[in-house]
Design a protein around this nucleic acid. Structure first.
Lengths: 317, 317
DNA sequence: AATACCTATACAATAGTTTGACAAAAATAT
DNA sequence: ATATTTTTGTCAAACTATTGTATAGGTATT
């Protein structure tokens, strides 16, 4: 999985580079290894030591710690976290930092608050940096489920009450769209992944739901083409044809009293044929129950439910 | 299938070309192949090595990575993605490699063709990978100027003639939006960068122009908040207030005969006041000359001109 | 025929390895 | 307080690995 790739690609530096980066002389690096196993590099076929980024970080911290008066023999075997804590305690003689042991649910809630605050303050940079940290801390899975889904739901609600303006949503989707890149690279999709088109029908300008669906599908092994909001049925159908997609997901966030949406859905079904799965999600999807049932649509009821739908589609082909 | 033909048809360079483009001497390219299988070119009937674009990008990255202290034997077999990640992490610590003299203009034209072909084939994955390689090969600056600008212009034209459909544009902007992330990380913006809002006025659904403006501004040291397309003046103005922006850039791609645009522009100027610069670009901007002059708008005439505007705004504050 | 590319081998410059020694500093015992 | 250990950083010698480059003789392409 990702973890393994990550480790594989992190064994890479020879001792000279490590020395420059960490500030610990080569001889000393070797001595610390010999005497206390402070680091345990792998070796090349020829016997040269090969270090990872973690090792460099470790040596940096050890170096700092020793110059703060700690004896190398005592701290050589500390973990990265322990070393960080050590130095933090010393730098800021204040109280101890956050407990890292807390379960992810709590962590995610914390992030939701921070992210929502950034949205409210219209601070894209901070929002992006919170997201980046959250992806690392929570792993993609929990990031989507425990942070992104509830956050976007909340944004949808607050938008209705007038606490948030359209631009808050625009800004948020802009940030999330650029994050897609990281998420995709964390989970490179297989070569013969099933394809999917994600969009929003004409008249529906809110794209957060669609964006979320696209991300979830990508993380579950689909190759997604995300088209953004507000597209007529013909266009969506054309994209399906071009990409030979097996499924289309559209998101409906607001109900309108005209008949545009039902018409579009019927048209879309006719254009893509019955072999392509049509999936509909979004807060207002329930308002069109009748049409959806009529044309054979899979309705998304929850995050879990969407995942099950995706799995079944892969299995049943 | 088309996909595969398409990929295969791009394997075509001999070692001399590869050497010039990647900056790795021919002898060394061969040595890296012999010793570590860093690249695995195909061969002509006569035994000459034949390389693909991917190989060139790969060698370029390997070259950069080695000058960053990685040992070639350790990284030679890394995938393109792993190498990119490697260098991205390091770009955070800043380090600018020497740019080669090779004529980028020609290279960029080559990329334009490839990218356009991918757009036409509606192949998002390939398009993204071309963009990624191009950013590495051309450096951000030339990527924008010699590849992205002409490519988007061409897409705009072909859209008019009906060769391309709306979804082609949607797909392209989707890909470019997620690339924003790389570009931003290549050029981290300073802490006290001037801020700018970029959007498209109500009724204008084409966002490629705005997207381009946002990217250019970011590369020139602005902190940009990109809001996407189709926003009323009130919203744009609110975003300006929230972010304390010094400038607003809006893009107008199509002229409509109603009076929506002129009204929106007048309203926008009134709402943001005279202290905030109002910049307008886009193919159809010229159609509204009268209003633009009336309310004091900076019109973008070319890539170069836009950059000058940006510089003057920074200087004159 | 000229140029560019091929293989194979060689070679020098770095940069890394081990083993062991040594003195300054710090800790401990007297 | 003084003497004795222990810890710790540094260095040197002899040797090996890595890596970029060079040379020689031949082949492919234009």
């Amino acid at each position: 999985m990702q973890m393994e790739d990550y480790h594989k690609s992190s064994a890479q530096y020879l001792i000279g580079t490590v020395s420059k980066r960490s500030g610990v002389k080569s001889d000393l690096v070797r001595a610390w290894e010999r005497r206390y196993q402070a680091v345990t590099p792998t070796r090349t076929a020829g016997g040269h030591r090969v270090y990872s980024d973690q090792d460099i970080a470790r040596l940096k911290l050890l170096n700092q710690a020793t110059s703060h008066g700690h004896s190398i023999s005592q701290i050589a075997q500390f973990s990265l976290d322990e070393l960080k804590r050590l130095l933090q305690q010393e730098d800021t003689q204040n109280y101890s930092p956050v407990s890292l042991t807390g379960d992810k649910r709590f962590l995610a809630e914390d992030y939701i608050e921070k992210c929502y605050a950034a949205v409210l303050a219209f601070d894209a940079k901070t929002l992006e940096s919170h997201f980046e940290n959250a992806i690392v801390e929570l792993q993609s899975q929990a990031f989507i489920e425990d942070l992104l889904t509830p956050l976007l739901t909340r944004i949808g609600e607050r938008w209705k009450t007038g606490e948030l303006r359209p631009i808050h949503e625009h800004m948020t989707s802009s940030v999330i769209r650029s994050l897609t890149y990281i998420l995709r690279n964390n989970n490179p999709c297989p070569d013969h992944a099933p394809r999917m088109i994600v969009s929003t029908p004409i008249g529906q300008l809110h794209e957060l739901g669609a964006l979320l669906a696209a991300i979830i599908a990508e993380l579950n092994g689909w190759q997604v083409t995300y088209l953004g909001a507000n597209l007529p049925a013909e266009e969506i159908a054309a994209a399906v044809k071009y990409t030979h997609s097996k499924a289309v997901t559209i998101s409906i966030s607001f109900s309108t009293d005209d008949h545009v949406i039902p018409k579009e859905i019927r048209r879309l079904r006719k254009l893509i044929g019955n072999d392509v799965a049509l999936i509909v999600g979004g807060r207002a999807a329930a308002c069109y129950e009748a049409v959806l049932d009529e044309v054979g649509v899979l309705k998304i009821e929850s995050y879990e439910h969407f995942r099950r739908i995706l799995e079944q589609l892969v299995a049943g082909s």
